[in-house]
Every structure is written in C-alpha cells, then in structure tokens.
Design a protein around this nucleic acid. Structure first.
Lengths: 331, 331
DNA sequence: CTGTTAGCGCTTTCAT
DNA sequence: ATGAAAGCGCTAACAG
C-alpha cells in the first residue's frame, strides 16, 4: 500500500506552494493560467486525491451526516422508507450513511454508526438500556415504535386508530369473527413470544367477548403463508384476518389460493403498511396504510431541530403520524 | 448555533490536559480513576462529542468508505443488491454511504458522493463521458452493464447465455412464438427509445425468421401490466413472453389475470432477476435468476483490489457473473 | 500517572 | 500572483 499522495507532493512536483495547488484545484482566482495548468497536470500525473478527512476538518460548513439503520432490505416497507428518507435528507442537505440491522443486530449497527455521524435514525426494538449504551452520546430518532422511549426522540405511528376503524369497517361488511396474524419477532429475539403492540391494540379494540384467534409467524411472505394455514386450521370459523404487515398479508393471500379459500368472499384479509406491492396480487391487498413520506419528513424535522442546537442533549422530541385505511379488493 | 465544544473545553473544565481527556474518553490506561471520573463528568456536562473529522484525519487506520448509488428503492432488485452489498461491505470492513439516483439523476448522485468516499459502486446507464466527468477522479465500479466501459471497472452480467437457454427451453415446452416486453428507460431519459441489450440479445438469439413481437414499458409492476396488454393486443398469437425484469413480469401476470389469459397454458411468462417476490404471485414466476450475492462479492473484490493500490488509476478490472434459469410455474 | 510536542492534510488569513 | 503562517480537533510519541 503506497503512501498517500498529498497536496505537498503535488506542490513539489509543480514547483509551487501548497496554497497555489489549492487555488488551482478549487478553481479559485488569483492564479496565473499557466501556473494553474502546470499544477493540474502535476496533480493528474500523481493521481492526487484530496483527503476528504482533512478537507472536512477544515471546511467552514461541516458536512452534516445522518446515520440510517435499515431493519431489512428484504421487506419493501423498510426500503421504501429508506428511499423516502434518503430523498428527504438529500433535499435538506444531509449526507446519509446506512447500515443494515438484518444480519447483525441493531445495537451493533448503532455502535458502528455512532462515531461517524451526527445523528441516527431508524427502527429500533431493543430495550432502552441497550440503545442508550450503544448510541454513545449520539442522538437517536426512533421510528414507528408506539411506546414512548425516554431519552430518545421519536416519530411514532398511530396504528391504533387505523385498527379501530378497520374493525368497525370489517364488521360493517359482515365479518363475524376476526382473527389476527402477528409477528413472532420477539420470539426470535429472545425465545419468548410477546404480543406486538399491533396485536395488543387489536385485542383491546375487538372487545373481551370475542374468541382469541391469533397466530404468530415470521415477518415475510413465507411466514405469512404458514401462519395463515395454521390460523385456518386452528380457527376455521374465522372470516376476516388482520395481518401484522403487508408482506405477511401477501403470503396469507397466497396460502388462501392454495387452500382454495376465496378472498374476500370466505375470508377477508387486511394488511398493514400500504405497500404498492399490494396492487400486484390477486385480489389486490386492502391495507392500513402508513404515510411514509410524512414519516420521513417528520424524522428530518427532528434531525434539523437537533442540528440547530448542535445535537446537545435535550428533551425528547416526539411526533405522531397517522395511518389510514386503503380499501382494495381483499377485504 | 452554539460554537462547537472541543476537547480543549473539556480539558479546561476538568483542569487537565487534552491528552488526559483523550485517555479518559477512549478508555486507555495510564490514568487515575479519579481523574478519569472528573474528565468524564466534565465531558458529559458540556455535552462533548469528539469531532469525527479530526478523529478520522489522525486515525492510523483510515475509515474506508464506499459510495453506493442505488438506482431505485421501489424495485426490490436494486434494494436486495444494496442489502447484499451492505452486508458484504460490512464484513470486509467498509463503511457505506448511499445515494439514490431515483429522483436526482445518477451523475448528480455520483458528484455528491465522490468527495466523500474512496470508491463508488452502482448501476450506471449514463454515457462514459458523463460518468467520467462526474466521478472527479474517484474510481467507479459499474454493475450489470453488459457493454464494456473503458475507464471504469465493472461487474458485468452474462444474461445472454441465460436468454439463449431460456429460448431453447421455452421452445422445447412448445412455445411457437416468443414475444418480449422491454424497458423504455432510454425513452424516458432521452426521448429516444433504444432497445436494451436484453432485447438485442433476445432478437439475435431468437433468429431472423421470427416475427418481432416486442413492446416497451416503464420498469414497474404497472408498466409491465400495461405493456402486456399492449403486446397481446398487437400480437395475439404470442404464446410466450420474455420480460425485461421480474417486477414488470409480475405486472404482466397481473394483467393476464385481468385479460383472462391463462398462465402458463395460453401464454408463458418469464422474468429476469430472480426476485423472491416471484414466489408470492399466482402462478409463481419463472425467471432468469441473477446471483446477487456473487455480484456483491465480486464488486467488493474489485473495491479491495483498488484499495490495495491506494485507488490509483489502473487498468479496468472486469468480472462477469452468470445467470441461471429458475423454473417455477409461469413458464 | 500526566503534560508537552508534533503532526494528520487541508484551507484560510495575511504578507509579499 | 504567489508564499508563509496559523489553525481546524484530535491522537501518538515522548517527556517528566
């Protein structure tokens, strides 16, 4: 590994001072054309690349860098949010460094990002303590989580009102027994299944008199398929299903095909997320849709607010984004 | 915007030297516990955050940063590659900065990334000259492109052999007239439609005697649907269709449902990409599958090779990744 | 155990 | 038009 070519080497080769090199390369004036040409040539000859570290260190306007932890690149929900966030960040003059918490765990991603960025945004399901320890002083903006986490900022999701509305609407359409397919995420993380807040909301809203028809599966198309089969076997009377997310709901529709169950005639299927992918399946997927662009915009609002106070510790900032029902064909 | 808190301020408040602050914060030894405690407290009081710029400038092992240009966050093909690349990069000790070329154009993304990173990886469809100008000396690794671009490194895709094999297999299964749905990407970029290399390969391989049944559409589910309708209207005799990518192919299957055309009985549909999503539709999508993990690994191989020579200009490095047929139900 | 010195590579004064 | 000096904020190496 050869030693780095510095501005000094270029200056030496061109027979000028370092500042002259700076002038030539940054297209500043106060430099003779001929000198400039010579410097540029020397720079090209040596394959000189200014150090981005030195440059940023001395830059008057520091590059503002945002760390983004993407939970999964296999679930379009997360990648679409990442896309929205990236666009929004670019328009507000933020660089984005991404890390995936798919293979590693999310605190590992956080720990890796924290020394590199001014602030981290992402979906985090770990305990407050673990986040606190991994963030190492860098402010964190937590997305989607419905509980309020002290010490971090958040853009929360109001799914509860969407779920409530959905239950009413499903009943109005004639559903008598509504089941749910939940995520088994907690089970995979800690070997203990804890119902998701989506399920907790669902069970509270559906009322105490109702039979509890719920199963949990992996957050994927396949997981949704398996869970649907399990649900229908255990609770054949179910005529409507709320599914943890759209990906699993698409899996459920797929499984319904296989089981020869007509959707929505025999069973209504309703997802959560609002993925455009839902339009590609038959029947098209009805869903509780999350306004991802607003979510991204709110997250950047928090980030800008924090930047304005130089990322000092401050009272948690909190935003809430609402969801809305998107009726297509499956429910 | 308050002035930045530096190591100096912490040192002053704790009544020690800057070096002692460094020792305390970086958990180095050779420091009194009591002093350490005092420094840590001062640091916390001031909300001190070490400058990542200064730190990287002086670090012996420079952070190696790779820029990744993601063409679209709405097409799982690109996000899945991004995920693979991110994992691969992390395991080889590379930081990744991402930019999307979805809303902006790709040279803008390249221009934004180039001062921040050591090397850029991504899908680029612009002309050599535009890339050359935007990269500003930073080495670029171009993915997927089948033509050989002088001056940039590349991981190319051998789709031709996959397409050839597919045509043989479709004919063996009884297809008499194979059509194609192409991407109209070039049309959107420059108002002139230029057949993609996939289409050029297809037409060469299908032989000169064959009728040319091809239409072009947007690279999306919807675009695939519209194109399929158009294709079947213009060329009703077509009994097999090769589609530019899986997303469009899923759209085509969707449209076939709507048109009441049985897949694969009446028309066989074959995509390109190998998205796992293809398993979620009915019938499941047959496809020419690209080994994304190998693609990611090859790209990182190039990157590591370049790092070893300190990113000096060098002869273009070139890898080729093969594709393979993945028969599911639609063809 | 702690402080001093010397850079990392660049850009910005300010002289010349 | 060019050069010299100062300093961005940090850490490694050496003193004390």
């Amino acid at each position: 590994m050869a030693k780095r070519v510095t501005i000094h080497d270029v200056a030496a080769l061109a027979g000028v001072s370092r500042q002259t090199v700076t002038r030539a390369l940054n297209d500043m004036d106060g430099i003779n054309d001929e000198t400039k040409r010579r410097v540029l040539e020397a720079s090209a000859r040596l394959g000189y690349r200014p150090s981005r570290f030195a440059r940023s260190l001395v830059a008057r306007e520091k590059t503002r860098t945002l760390g983004l932890v993407v939970s999964s690149f296999r679930n379009p929900y997360y990648t679409e949010i990442a896309g929205d966030l990236l666009d929004c960040a670019a328009s507000r003059n933020w660089q984005v460094i991404m890390a995936s918490s798919e293979s590693a765990d999310e605190t590992a991603a956080l720990r890796m990002l924290s020394p590199q960025v001014d602030v981290v945004v992402g979906h985090f399901w770990s305990s407050m303590e673990r986040i606190e320890e991994a963030r190492d002083g860098v402010p964190v903006v937590v997305l989607d989580r419905t509980e309020h986490l002290p010490g971090t900022h958040s853009v929360e999701l109001d799914l509860r009102s969407g779920i409530e509305e959905a239950i009413h609407a499903l009943r109005a359409k004639g559903a008598r027994s509504i089941g749910m397919i939940d995520s088994d995420y907690s089970l995979r993380q800690s070997s203990v299944y804890v119902p998701s807040s989506r399920r907790r909301d669902f069970e509270e809203l559906i009322g105490p008199g109702q039979p509890k028809a719920a199963v949990a599966g992996e957050e994927s198309i396949r997981g949704g398929s398996l869970a649907f089969v399990e649900l229908m076997r255990a609770h054949p009377y179910v005529d409507a299903v709320l599914v943890f997310n759209d990906l699993m709901a698409i899996g459920a529709i797929h499984a319904a095909h296989t089981l020869n169950i007509k959707v929505p005639e025999q069973v209504r299927i309703l997802g959560i997320d609002g993925l455009s992918l839902g339009e590609a399946v038959h029947p098209t997927l009805s869903t509780i849709s999350i306004d991802r662009e607003t979510l991204a915009a709110r997250a950047l609002d928090v980030v800008d607010t924090l930047a304005a106070i130089n990322f000092a510790e401050t009272e948690p900032i909190r935003h809430v984004v609402r969801s809305r029902l998107l009726w297509r064909e499956s429910a």
